[in-house]
């Protein structure tokens, strides 16, 4: 019995590792055509789906099998040909459409940063209030309300952002009703309950004896929170931020509604732009061939970004200082 139990739990643990590496491998294989074609330059290229007219080979588009002519209008048929498998690899290489991932990468990082700047102070305030300051008759219902907020599906946040929050922000800050700032703030609202409830729980684990001794020494409430509770609950607090960060990086539906979906570098906070998950959600169903590979390349980048950010946060904040 002991043995079976041990191997069963071992099996579950290794499955996670297997799934993780399998995802990575699949992403890599699918992205390979795009990686081969654009290489590392993909990361800094702001063009997406732009047909490049090469000056020295003006006939490329005309002669390419991929373009069929309808009454003198160039109609992009790459997708169709690739979909039916009629496009040989050599023809695909000749295709002069450029995909670059800079704008979605920047959009993802910026919207996440805005969300964290907005959410961290508020979430900390909520959890301190709930754990230390609020009387029980208040902290119970508010705590439950926060947990309920965390359970709301993201698409509801998206619709709320699109129809009410976005126009409201646009009235205050100007710009259009869907933009980077709205996306960041909606993301922030979405991750606040996560952070707040996890932080509150870890604050509550501070032994009463520690707090009471501090009070006995004459410490004020602020000093107790700053010097006793925060250091004690640090691991839990940082952990909650990391979880929230992971969610903000990969959030798709809500952001797809409010970020604008425009391949454009944001010059102001109120400019619409695009993030990696949004590009994937918008274009996946209609893509094939090289554009599909480019999407997989983006997915791989998102995978690596979240992996790096989270492991960096883990090692930096949670290493044992003893």
């Amino acid at each position: 019995m002991e043995k079976i139990f041990k191997s069963l739990s071992q099996l579950s643990a290794t499955t996670i590792l297997l799934i993780l590496s399998a995802i990575f491998v699949v992403l890599y294989i699918q992205a390979k055509p795009a990686i081969k074609k654009y290489g590392i330059h993909f990361l800094v290229d702001p063009r997406w789906g732009v047909t490049v007219q090469k000056n020295n080979t003006p006939n490329v588009a005309k002669n390419s099998v991929a373009n069929s002519d309808v009454g003198g209008i160039q109609v992009e048929d790459d997708d169709v040909l690739a979909a039916i498998g009629a496009l040989s690899p050599s023809q695909e290489k000749k295709s002069n459409v450029v995909y670059g991932g800079l704008i979605p990468i920047v959009g993802t990082i910026l919207s996440t940063i805005i969300a964290m700047i907005f959410a961290v102070p508020i979430a900390m305030g909520i959890s301190i209030f709930l754990a230390e300051i609020a009387p029980p008759f208040l902290s119970k219902p508010v705590g439950i309300a926060i947990e309920l907020l965390a359970a709301i599906p993201s698409i509801i946040y998206g619709m709320w952002g699109l129809f009410y929050f976005g126009p409201f922000i646009a009235k205050i800050f100007g710009g259009s009703s869907v933009n980077l700032l709205v996306a960041g703030l909606v993301l922030g609202v979405m991750i606040i309950p996560f952070m707040a409830s996890l932080t509150r729980d870890s604050m509550k684990t501070t032994p009463n004896i520690l707090k009471e001794s501090a009070y006995a020494m004459g410490a004020t409430k602020f000093e107790v929170i700053k010097d006793v509770i925060f250091p004690y609950a640090k691991k839990g607090i940082v952990g909650s931020m990391i979880l929230a960060l992971g969610r903000a990086l990969g959030e798709t539906m809500a952001v797809a509604f409010v970020i604008g979906g425009v391949f454009n570098f944001p010059h102001k906070l109120t400019d619409p732009t695009v993030s990696i998950p949004v590009v994937l959600a918008n274009n996946f169903a209609e893509s094939s061939g090289l554009s599909l590979a480019a999407l997989f390349y983006l997915a791989l980048i998102l995978f690596v970004i979240s992996f790096i950010v989270i492991s960096f946060a883990k090692f930096y904040f949670l290493r044992d200082k003893k």
């Binding site: 063009r47 997406w48 789906g49 732009v50 047909t51 309808v70 003198g72 209008i73 160039q74 109609v75 992009e76 997708d79 259009s176 009703s177 869907v178 797809a256 509604f257 604008g260 979906g261 425009v262 391949f263 454009n264 010059h267 102001k268 400019d271 619409p272 959600a281 918008n282 274009n283 209609e286």
Partner: peptide, 24 residues
């Protein structure tokens, strides 16, 4: 026709001027 053609996804010139918004 010369610059953009007929496609399912376009990089709209208005986007670059910051006057573009897109919807899913």
């Amino acid at each position: 026709r010369k610059n953009y053609g007929a496609r399912k996804l376009i990089n709209w010139p208005t986007d670059a001027q910051g006057r573009g918004v897109a919807g899913k």
